[in-house]
Amino acid sequence: MIEVVDIAPLASVQDLGRAPYLRYGVSYSGVMDRLALLAGNVMLGNADDLAGVEMQAFPCRFRFREATDFAVTGAGCTVTLDDAPVLPWWAGRAEAGQVLTIAAPRRGARAYLAVAGGIDVPVILNSRSTQFRGAFGGHEGRWLQAGDVLPVGTTEGTLAAPGFGAQPPDAALPADFAPDDLQPNTTAVRVLTAGEYELFTEESQQRFWATGWKISGQSNRAGFRLLGQPLDFAKRLEMRSHGIVPGIVQVPPSGEPIIQMSDAHTAGGYPKIATVIEPDLWRLAQAPLGSRLRFVPVAYKDALVAVRQAEAWVASLRRLSGQYRSLCATGRRP
């Protein structure tokens, strides 16, 4: 069990998402930064789909009631176990009674706590993720609060000290596709153009690519609202509602884009100009409010290359993790 000693708002229990229930209107939910939770689970030898805690505000403090292997991934936070510093993207072991503190990030926006055995809340509709709209899943279908006690699943094997670290994806998967004129404090993400791209004026299409869109303070797990000179429609249509997914960039009549995120509706009717490719969704998840985004067009085949690069990074982490844990199992000090 883990006690939530102290927690900033907007932390929740999430796994890799809920499927296949889109046809009942049930969104994927799940972590915003899929690579970060996946990495935490891989480092701990967990099944990929076990749940962890997503943190979007800081500081957060957890007390381990039993000795527990843990990993903190995602944003580059200052992390301490009691008073000892823990490096970001590190998997280690906490003894019973120790307190883990995760403070505000210097880099990125969302941090993840994974534990060996996973956060063992009930599986509802195939997932442990919190579904806020339906108020189910996760821990009692809601955001975490101080005083909550989270069950941890059983696990075999333990990590010997000192544990091991992973190279974070922003180092392993650099944004070498970013435009040359990328401004500071701006995240570049790759997109495929979407069905209604042609509905926009040519000038607005150009401006969509050239603008550093500011992520509004009204952004959250459901969607990122972007601020910038509104895009103009060459033709206005009342769309028939259709399926939408995280990454879709819609343009409502106001002309300022909205990117759908993990808690997105499963269907919508605003024209969509583009879709952020899945292997770049973690970049969005780590873009702080108030920072800017640049959209970079990509061909489908290049999107597939990006998918494989992310998979290769996970596979290499899986090998490293397997080696470290087999050394621990043989009793040799790694």
Partner: peptide
């Protein structure tokens, strides 16, 4: 104005979804 199509339209939404 309804967005009525004259031909079926298929478009990828990212790499794992299709409309």
């Amino acid at each position: 104005v309804d967005n009525q199509l004259t031909q079926p339209r298929v478009s990828m939404l990212g790499t794992t979804h299709l409309l």
